[in-house]
Simulated scan of single mutants.
Amino acid sequence: MMSEDRVSVRAVSLERGTARPVGEIAVIDDDRALLELTLMAVRDSGYRAIGFSDPLDALMWASDADPTCIVADLKMPGVEGLDLVAAFCALNRHAVIIVSAFVDVRMTVDAMRLGVDNVLPKPTTGESLIRAIEQGAAALQVAPPREELTFTRRESQVAEMLVGGMTTKQIAQSLSLSPRTVEFFRASLLRKTQSPNSAALASALTRIGFRAS
């Protein structure tokens, strides 16, 4: 996720005196070596940090976490395109930073429309990463978190099919997704609606206004 050049990041960060976000910084990358390198740089800069190599685990954590910065790789196994960061943005309380080797103008524009705070090329320097985290932390302090319930496009599609009684396999076939990806969105819907099981989820989605597609 970042280059070996970690340039005295701790000194840069502490001299600026930027206030820290409430919770741990979350770093998501399926490359474990890069994940550990990024976590080390973030911690060396005075932040607490937690790492994830599984996008579903990261989403489950982010659903309950205090407002903080999330640093996410774009290409994750089992999740397509911007779906992962869209799910984070839809929580409406975290600053989301993308670090990706697939940065281009179109992707950056699409990401910003979702609510992403920053997009960095991969590999990035430690100083660039910490600067983005500091900017995200500052944004969290001036913009109170929004609590309204929002859903990504994929979540809405899955919700309609769940209300219609479709199974994970059927939804996956209909949307040309893997069953693992469907479970990712189903888990997100469970957390957002605070539903304990699938039956309660279908009921909650119906009350919200979802109808079978």
Rank of each mutant, 00 (worst) to 15 (best):
R32H: 01
L37F: 02
I25M: 11
R16Q: 13
R43E: 15
R16S: 11
M60Y: 08
M40H: 15
L39F: 06
P55E: 02
D31L: 00
G17L: 12
L59V: 09
T38N: 03
V22A: 13
D54A: 04
V27I: 14
R20T: 13
E15T: 08
D44I: 07
P55F: 01
V22H: 01
L59N: 05
V22E: 12
D44A: 15
V22G: 00
M60S: 13
W61C: 07
R32E: 13
I25H: 11
D44G: 14
D57M: 12
I25P: 05
D54W: 00
S53N: 08
S63G: 09
M40N: 14
A26P: 01
A41D: 14
S63D: 06
Y47P: 09
L34S: 09
E15M: 11
D44V: 06
F52G: 04
V22W: 00
P21M: 10
R20I: 09
V27F: 06
M40E: 15
E36W: 02
E24V: 09
E36V: 07
L59W: 07
F52L: 07
D66Q: 13
V42P: 10
L59R: 06
L34H: 01
L37P: 00
A19S: 14
A65Q: 08
P67H: 05
G17M: 11
R48C: 07
S63N: 05
P67R: 09
L39Q: 13
R20E: 12
L34Y: 00
A33T: 07
A26Q: 10
R16H: 09
A62L: 12
E15W: 00
E24D: 13
R16I: 06
R16G: 12
L37T: 05
L56T: 15
G23V: 02
E24L: 07
A58L: 02
E24I: 03
L37S: 08
M60G: 10
F52D: 02
I25D: 08
I28M: 03
T38I: 08
P55S: 03
E36K: 12
S63V: 05
L59D: 04
R43M: 13
L37H: 06
D31Q: 01
R20W: 08
L59Q: 06
A19V: 15
G23Q: 01
R32V: 11
A33P: 00
L37D: 07
